[in-house]
Design a binder for these strands. Structure first.
Lengths: 346, 346
DNA sequence: TCCATTCATGAAAGCGCTTTCTTTTGGCGC
DNA sequence: GCGCCAAAAGAAAGCGCTTTCATGAATGGA
């Protein structure tokens, strides 16, 4: 049952066993084309036999390549990010890269520290969330020369490489839909703005869209919340407290939308008859809610995959281009309908 | 806007700037107690001024410590794991460790490769999910001498350090509850068993508990599914196809439970009047469903935190002890009730 | 006052690889 | 059969740190 922990094997010993030099072993393992088939076979056999596992740090030191990419996301508690990270990692794995992951909890300082640590660890590239970061971070990034890519924002949002969709457009699509249905009084249940340019962009887009439709959007129609269902329900009630409810609510994401539906239902408010709700993200449950949730499908996995591809390409000096922005899709389901007929004005 | 990428600073230059030797700089930065306050201050100032960032690989090579821990989990798509990973990472961060993360997608071979890669990268410790792995994996682990900890299983499940709760006990608790309510015909909607000893343990526990209550549990009462809601609903129908429905269903987790509730509702089956359902995990939504879900609360964050603590302790040669098993809590809510009165037998 | 300790510092030897540079080998044309 | 050149292999010099080990200064006991 217990295996004798054999001493660690260094390249030297593989070389001796195979009857070649360490240099040849290194080449055979990392760049087989440089070694004749016979020696290559010998080396491979010896390596396998001895259970040779290269020493990553030594390799990184000598080659100036860590074969590791870093990712810093706000949180793993949101499937939006964990899905993207999953896709990112799978892409890396396919290319034999390792992922370093850290979470910042929407804290700029923590993010800075994490990035610094990763640079220190020698990551070959870095994935960040959001297109607006502190100057200190950008300075650090530029000083280190590590390729990086920002995510969840369209390319135009930053002078630095960025990949994602346009959050401004997102709320525009939603408002267009709602206004098209006849809604004139639309509210928004937004996420917290702290270090979250996605939320900020959506607000901007919301305001602009409302203006285009010549619809009012007083501050009282916007309420902020984190993504705990309790908090969302409280936000719902907060909006009620501020005056008569809007006929439609734009949620920051599907979880928020779910919370709103839950609170509406428990108050006997009919969705969508009395109140329309739109989510964002198209989580799996969205389609299964009662009624099924109208939402915007966002390309989370694509973001992770493309981020990985971009970084890998940069590292290997392959040409890459980032899409200007990723497509969004309005998924029409059962939570939106024309507003109730105005029997009483305001 | 553009910062001139200053050349990378090596310890040598910090030493020169501070007017001391490289050895002193290293000591001042890593083990300040060994350096006199004056020199320490000088070094710190020089390091800050030059923006010195240590070279992790060189440091790892020289010190034989990577200051990185690895984690390999089946998937990030399940909050069970992403929450635990989040807690794990936060704990590491507090101690200035970095996390390497990889997902195996429940594939033993992928897991092996990932572990190998991490060992190669020189992780100081490793967190794994599950208490049963292939012999090859254990051999690798022992040969490398890297401390590791298994999770999501009780200590007794393995000769190796393991931290988690007892999945056998979990289903026992559920069955006890259901049987106590008067249910005699209980079904189980389990997860896929492939490389998943948690599911297998729950099956074992389920069978044992049913036996203790002298209740039958034919194979037809157990149906397997992955965690997509569509699949769960199909599983529900599959069970119906096999004969008259049980009066209670044990779900593999809250997502599965949700899927079951959804399907029941859409068929007009009343929960819990006609059908009791129990979940596992106590996800945040569980309390907000209609009716609120009876479920078992599992200590996911605790598992992540304790895993980190154990590993850190091992690395620093601090004494550690792992709890035999973590506590489970039955959260009674609205989806369980006595079975409908037997108007017609079987 | 002198020697034995202790403490802070510096010099230098690696850590285990990769990669340049050099040497050797072998293929091929004449 | 000889010489030339390309390809393959080896020797050795680092990569940028940490950590022994050695040294010198400072302290204290006799």
């Amino acid at each position: 049952m217990t295996i004798k922990p054999r001493a660690k094997i260094r390249i030297e010993e593989v070389a001796r066993t195979a009857g070649v030099s360490a240099a040849t072993v290194s080449r055979a393992l990392n760049n087989p084309a440089l070694v004749s088939p016979q020696l290559r076979a010998k080396v491979e056999k010896a390596a396998k036999k001895l259970g040779y596992v290269a020493h990553g740090a030594a390799r990184a030191l000598a080659s100036r390549r860590s074969h590791a990419l870093g990712a810093v996301v706000p949180t793993l508690g949101n499937t939006i990010f964990s899905d993207a990270i999953g896709a990112f990692q799978r892409r890396l794995e396919a290319e034999n890269y390792t992922m370093l992951l850290a979470t910042s909890d929407y804290d700029e300082e923590v993010e800075y520290r994490n990035v610094r640590t990763m640079i220190e660890r020698g990551v070959d590239g870095l994935m960040l969330v959001g297109a607006t970061h502190g100057k200190a971070l950008y300075d650090l990034l530029e000083a280190s020369g590590v390729p990086f890519v920002q995510t969840w924002a369209p390319a135009k949002a930053s002078p630095y490489p960025t990949i994602g969709y346009d959050n401004t457009a997102l709320t525009r699509i939603v408002v267009d839909h709602l206004a098209g249905l006849g809604h004139r009084d639309i509210g928004m249940v937004a996420g917290l703005r702290r270090n979250n340019d996605r939320v900020r962009a959506r607000l901007v887009g919301m305001r602009a869209a409302m203006r285009r439709h010549r619809l009012p959007l007083p501050a009282s129609r916007i309420v902020f919340t984190d993504y705990r269902i309790d908090a969302v329900r409280a936000a719902f009630r907060e909006m009620q407290r501020r005056g008569p409810m809007p006929t439609a609510l734009v949620a920051n994401n599907d979880i928020v939308a779910l919370g709103l539906m839950l609170e509406a239902q428990s108050q006997g408010i009919r969705v969508p008859r009395q109140l329309s709700i739109v989510g964002v993200g198209d989580l799996e449950v969205a389609a299964h809610l009662h009624p099924p949730l109208t939402t915007i499908r966002t390309p989370k996995q694509t973001i992770g995959t493309l981020a990985a591809e971009y970084l890998l390409a940069r590292i290997h000096d392959r040409p890459v281009e980032l899409p200007a922005e990723l497509a969004l899709e309005l998924v029409l389901r059962g939570t939106t309908a024309p507003p109730p007929r105005k029997d009483k004005t305001v």
